[in-house]
Amino acid sequence: MTVSLVDKRIPSQRISGLDLPNKTWFAVLSISGMGKLVNTQFTNDPLIVTKSKASKMAKLIDEWAPPDDWCNGHDKKAHNMIKGHLIDFLRNCNGFRSH
């Protein structure tokens, strides 16, 4: 199963979204302080996140070191690449919806 993050802009203006494996997304939700921004229950219930909260999420993720088993056990280089894509998305989206 995956979680899709989709920019809230209209389709012709939105930036590319992200699809993350559940385990990867749930690790992000487990970051200290994330519960103050979004519902951190490990479900696939949709989230609707504002631009401001997405920016705050990016800051938390930027300061976070992913666990070794994050991203289905890929190496640190892949972890940093995926983490970077997630941070870029959160900083540049106009808020997002998860599916």
Results as ranks from 00 to 15, higher is better:
98 S>F: 05
57 M>C: 14
65 A>M: 06
41 Q>A: 14
27 A>S: 07
34 M>W: 07
5 L>F: 07
8 K>H: 03
91 R>C: 02
77 K>H: 14
46 P>L: 08
74 H>N: 10
85 H>K: 10
28 V>A: 00
77 K>C: 10
44 N>F: 08
33 G>P: 07
41 Q>Y: 14
35 G>A: 04
29 L>T: 00
23 K>L: 04
95 G>P: 06
11 P>G: 06
49 V>P: 14
12 S>K: 08
8 K>I: 00
55 S>Y: 12
82 I>S: 05
88 D>E: 12
43 T>I: 09
94 N>K: 13
77 K>V: 15
69 D>L: 08
6 V>Y: 07
11 P>H: 09
27 A>R: 08
93 C>V: 06
83 K>N: 01
79 H>Q: 15
70 W>H: 05
7 D>N: 02
10 I>Q: 06
60 L>S: 02
12 S>V: 10
49 V>A: 13
82 I>G: 04
33 G>D: 07
90 L>G: 04
25 W>T: 01
77 K>N: 14
34 M>A: 12
70 W>F: 14
12 S>D: 11
93 C>S: 13
95 G>F: 13
4 S>F: 07
52 S>D: 15
30 S>A: 10
8 K>R: 12
31 I>M: 00
61 I>S: 04
60 L>M: 01
51 K>Y: 14
6 V>F: 05
45 D>Y: 12
28 V>H: 02
35 G>H: 03
78 A>D: 14
34 M>T: 11
74 H>W: 15
52 S>W: 12
60 L>V: 03
25 W>K: 01
99 H>C: 08
75 D>T: 10
79 H>K: 11
83 K>Y: 02
41 Q>H: 14
60 L>W: 02
